[in-house]
Every structure is written in C-alpha cells, then in structure tokens.
Amino acid sequence: MLEGKVKWSNSEKGFGFIEVEGQDDVFVHFSAIQGEGFKTLEEGQAVSFEIVEGNRGPQAANVTKEA
C-alpha cells in the first residue's frame, strides 16, 4: 500500500488526484474509495491505496482514508 494526500477532488464529477511524494500524481475515481455511504475525499486528506493500470494509465484502487 502507498500513502499520499488528496491533491484535489471533485465530488460532482466523481474523481480527483492523490499526491505521492517523489512520484507523479495518481488519478482516483470515487468507485475506488472503500467504505459505506457517500464516498468523498477532502483536499489534503491522508489516504492509503494501491496502484492499478486503468484505461488511461495508472490509477488508485482500494483507497482508504487515514484517521
């Protein structure tokens, strides 16, 4: 699992980007967020995730919010 911080997200469009130190930003779709209820990410929020190869390149999977 990698750790990063949410660079920005748009809940209306359903995606955002995660900033990882020393690496390119990672695309995240809201379907990759683990948990119940409305899935949102806040700018600056710490997250853990895996990287998978998506249709348009690397993207985050199994995203969990850190406490």
Rank of each mutant, 00 (worst) to 15 (best):
G54L: 06
Q59M: 12
N62L: 07
I51P: 03
E43A: 14
N62W: 06
E36Y: 08
E43Y: 13
S9I: 15
P58Q: 07
V20T: 07
V6R: 00
E12I: 12
V63I: 05
I33V: 11
K13Y: 08
R56Q: 09
L41A: 01
E12G: 09
E66F: 14
V52M: 08
T64M: 12
I51C: 07
V28S: 00
F30T: 06
G37Q: 08
S31V: 04
H29C: 12
L41T: 01
G22Y: 05
G54V: 04
V28K: 00
E19Q: 13
D24W: 08
G16N: 02
M1G: 07
V26Q: 01
F17Q: 01
E12R: 11
A60S: 02
R56C: 14
Q34I: 15
G35H: 06
A61E: 06
P58G: 04
P58Y: 08
K65V: 15
N62M: 08
F49T: 02
Q59K: 08
V63M: 03
A67G: 13
M1Q: 10
V63S: 02
S11E: 10
V63R: 01
S9H: 11
V63F: 00
Q34M: 13
L41P: 01
K5A: 03
G35P: 04
G16R: 00
S48H: 13
F17W: 08
E21N: 10
K5L: 08
A60L: 01
G44W: 04
Q45R: 06
D25E: 04
E19P: 00
E12Q: 12
G16D: 00
K65F: 14
E53D: 10
F30C: 08
V52Y: 08
Q34C: 13
I33F: 07
E36V: 10
A32F: 06
Q34V: 15
W8L: 05
T40A: 09
Q23K: 11
V6C: 05
K39L: 11
T64P: 01
F30Y: 10
G16H: 03
L2T: 08
Q45S: 08
N55E: 13
F15T: 01
A46N: 13
L41M: 07
V47E: 01
V20Q: 03
Q23S: 10
V47K: 00
G14N: 10
E42V: 13
A46R: 15
V47M: 02
L2V: 12
H29R: 05
G16V: 04
E19D: 06
N55G: 11
I18D: 00
A61M: 10
A61I: 13
N10D: 11
I51S: 02
G37L: 09
S9A: 15
Q23M: 15
F38N: 12
Q45F: 05
F15H: 03
I51T: 04
F17C: 07
P58I: 09
F15C: 05
N62V: 05
Q45M: 12
S31R: 02
G54Q: 04
K13M: 09
A67P: 13
E50Y: 13
T64F: 12
V26E: 00
N62K: 10
G37K: 07
G22E: 05
F27R: 01
F17K: 02
E66T: 15
K39F: 09
E36I: 10
Q34F: 09
E66C: 15
S11C: 14
K5Q: 06
S11M: 14
Q45I: 09
G22M: 05
V28R: 00
K7F: 03
E3Y: 15
G22S: 05
F27D: 05
E3D: 09
N55I: 14
E43P: 15
Q45K: 04
V6D: 01
F49C: 03
M1E: 05
G54R: 06
E50I: 14
A61H: 10
E42R: 11
N55F: 15
D24F: 10
G57I: 02
V63Q: 02
S11K: 15
A60K: 00
L41S: 00
A32G: 06
W8E: 02
K13N: 05
V20I: 11
E50S: 09
V20A: 04
S9T: 15
V6W: 05
S31Q: 07
V26Y: 03
E53L: 14
A32L: 02
A32Y: 06
F15K: 01
D24V: 11
G37I: 07
R56A: 08
L2E: 04
V63T: 01
G22F: 05
V52W: 07
M1R: 15
N10T: 06
G16F: 14
K65W: 10
V6E: 02
E21A: 13
S11Q: 14
M1H: 10
G44V: 01
K5I: 13
V47T: 02
E42I: 13
E21H: 12
I33P: 02
D24Y: 09
E21K: 13
V26C: 06
F17N: 02
